[in-house]
């Protein structure tokens, strides 16, 4: 299962992901043409800020998604290949029940088609072996895309590195380190 991972400490709030997302959802998929399209393309990712700290919010593609559960017409559904949550725009009637139950607040509304819109994890890009547009556009790699397990492992290794470095320092400084009595003494 591949996911977009967020490293909050790296996000500068530049909004590159928002623009890349809108361009990805334009007809031309080219910035300089997209800005002249009507209706204007709409983003599915939202950079908010609390106390000056930016937070890029997107659909998390929940494993048990309340939006899927609540949708009265079955327009919200889980797609298997990339394990994402998607909207079937032909079914959607724009009641926005999904938005009301989404804890992340990342479901938008397309006033032209009168349907709910949300991140689809750039399925068309994934099919071509590319990463989602927001990830590609992120200049600080605050957004990363990969196998959930691998990304988690990277996190574990990261924290392990910190602990082990501390241990080394302590050993070198001959600090009394608690060790389990392994017997034999």
């Amino acid at each position: 299962m591949k996911r977009v991972f967020l490293d909050l400490s790296r996000c500068t709030g530049c909004r590159s992901c928002e623009i890349a997302c809108a361009v990805q959802h334009s007809k031309s998929q080219n910035l300089f043409e997209a800005i002249f399209e009507t209706p204007p393309p709409r983003k599915r990712t939202y950079v908010e800020a609390i106390e000056g700290i930016p937070y890029p919010a997107r659909c998390m593609h929940c494993a048990e998604a309340p939006c899927v559960e609540i949708c009265p017409v079955g327009a919200m559904y889980r797609e298997d290949q990339f394990e994402t949550v998607r909207v079937n725009k032909d079914r959607c009637m724009g009641c926005l029940m999904c938005a009301m139950v989404c804890p992340n607040g990342v479901i938008g509304f397309d006033p032209d088609r009168k349907v709910a819109i949300k991140c689809g994890l750039c399925r068309s890009r994934l099919k071509e072996g590319m990463v989602p547009a927001c990830v590609e556009s992120c200049p600080t790699e605050a957004l990363r895309f990969g196998e959930f397990e691998e990304l988690e492992r990277q996190r574990r290794l990261q924290s392990a590195r910190v602990v082990i470095a501390a241990l080394r320092t302590a050993e070198q400084a001959s600090l009394p380190i608690y060790k389990e009595n392994t017997g034999g003494e």
Partner: peptide
Amino acid sequence: CRIDPFGNG
């Protein structure tokens, strides 16, 4: 300051 080219922001 940045202006959203798609009129959302």
